[in-house]
Every structure is written in C-alpha cells, then in structure tokens.
Write a protein that binds this DNA or RNA. Sequence first.
DNA 1: CTCGATGCAAATGCTTTGCAGAAAA
DNA 2: TTTTCTGCAAAGCATTTGCATCGAG
Lengths: 163, 163
Amino acid sequence: MGVTSTVEENAESVDEEVLEELNEKLSVYMDKNGLRSTSQRRVVTDVFFRSTGHLSIEELLAMVRERDPKIGYATVYRTLKLLKDCGIAYERHFGDGVSRYEIALEDEHHDHLICLECGKIVEFENDEIERLQDELAKKHDFTLKRHTHELYGVCGRCRGKKN
Amino acid sequence: MGVTSTVEENAESVDEEVLEELNEKLSVYMDKNGLRSTSQRRVVTDVFFRSTGHLSIEELLAMVRERDPKIGYATVYRTLKLLKDCGIAYERHFGDGVSRYEIALEDEHHDHLICLECGKIVEFENDEIERLQDELAKKHDFTLKRHTHELYGVCGRCRGKKN
DNA sequence: CTCGATGCAAATGCTTTGCAGAAAA
DNA sequence: TTTTCTGCAAAGCATTTGCATCGAG
C-alpha cells in the first residue's frame, strides 16, 4: 500500500490551551481509574499531544525514544490504548495493516482523503454527508455509533510526477 | 468486535446467468495469465460465486471442505487473491481484523451498515454521497481510485432485545 | 515433459500478554 | 507496602511464503 508518510495539509499541532485540556482530561480519567502517572506515560502522551497527523506506533516510538531511549514499544501500545479508551485518541486504519493514531478533539469530526502514491492524508468534513449518513441509519433502523469513511486516490502532485 | 455472522437483508445469491458471466470473466483472465483450472480452484470459486454476503476465509474454507475436505486454507487465500486481482471479488474490512469477500458485480457499488451487536450487514447505495465524494476529491485535487464507507451501529432488533 | 498449483509447515508482521523487577501512591 | 507499570521476550492471529510434490496442459 502507499501510506508511507503522514505529510499533512494544514499540519499544525494543538496550542498550549488545548494541550492543557488534553492533559486535564487524561488526568481525570487516570484518577478515576486508579492509574498512575509514570515518566514513560508522560513522555508518550506529551509526544502524542504535541504531534500532528496520523502516527503509527513505530513513528511514535521513534519520537518517544529521542526523549527516553529505554522506553519499550509495549508501553507505547499500552499508552495509546489508554488514550483511545479515554477518548483522547482515535485509532485509524488506512488499509496498510498498521494502526495510526490521531488526537480526538472535542466537537470535531473529520474523515480522510489518502494519496495511494505518497501517503499524504487530507482531512475533510462534510455536513451534508453526515446528514445523509444519519438519514440512512434511520431508514434502516440503526442507532449509529461511529463510521469510517476514507477516500483513496492520487494527489495532484503525484499525478504531476508521472507526466 | 461484533461482526460474528454475516446475516443479510435481501440475501439472495446470483442467478445462473450472472454465475456464467463470472465464470467466463474468470476463465478469460486465467487464460490471459497462463493460470490453470484445477479442481480446487473450481470448488473455491463455485462456492464463492454461489454464496451470499460477506464471507471470511474461515467461513469459505468450511463451505469448501464440505465438498472437498482436503483443500488447504492457503489455497482459499490464494484463490480469493486471484478473484480480487481479476476484479471479481471485493475484499472488505469491517474492523474485526479479518478480511471478508463479496462478489463484485459489474456496474454495482455499495457501502455497508454493520450492527455491532449481531454482525448484521446491510448494504446501501447513495448517489448523493457518491457525488459529494467526487466533489471533495476534485476540491482537493485528488483522482479518486476507491473508497471505504462503513456505518457502525446497533440494529433495531438488537436494540429491542436490551429493553 | 513443463511449469503452475497445492498442502503443509514455517515465517511474517502487527499487536497483545505473562512475568519478574521497578516505581508510584 | 501494596498495587500498578515497565521492558523484555514469548505468544497470538491473520495472512503469506518456501518447498517438495502433484497435476494441468
């Protein structure tokens, strides 16, 4: 498959205010569940919160090890599972067999356009599609919980390269 | 995850005419690529062509072994890869880690509504969503190749059971 | 005869888990 | 202290692959 990098359009990480919200939410969840704040978890979550895009465990591990080379990959897996469980991270699958993680911001939802050549990922939001989905669910008497919607194609730059 | 069965609404297998078309298409592809028609392949493709729904390798293997218990699972994997390559089968992923296969009919495209409780899969087609997807791709300068669109929720029957 | 196909078992790649030692609370 | 967490290696799983043998053409 083509998802080798996670270059983004509009790639900007969250600001300090949002970062604090994320840490607060995490802290509340951990307190509530008797979980402990360890140096490894702090490194992993901080790296993730300051990151941009849709990162694989491997990519996260590399970044994490720049700060603490001793951290094992099982810890990264476990910490991202934790973030997923408390609703701070979305786990995405773009068809290449690896899980990718992205920050789940409150009141924000988007889907993805993925370039099969260079792996560029563009986020999109479309209220009309969301509305049509709700309509479809209603028509078939389903209570919608979540959805996946990915468009795969070739981006303009990659198309250009081939000519 | 909840995708344990592949019960369908409107579950009807293809008629003899379509079955013949599928076999013809396969035959042409195999000739063109110097592939051989073996008894195992004939069993696997026939089972698949007469099937309904979204079958996993495991489910297909069980059906195949009713006809020929000696067929190995690698053969089923390899044969479904062949069907996928010649455009006769779609490979689907509904989030439970197994690949599922369904017959790819000409000029027909649909997406899926999946019940997280009972695994029921309902197919839907929505031209307006398709149109909006094309529009989005155009807007971001992508040439669309394919997409995935799955709605996960709880079906009416399962919702009823809980009350 | 040739070369593709099969069946088995081993290998792969991602992810999860068991466990003994480390470290939060 | 007690209980959770970590790091490592081993285990799990779905899928793929190497190889000797089989069989289609």
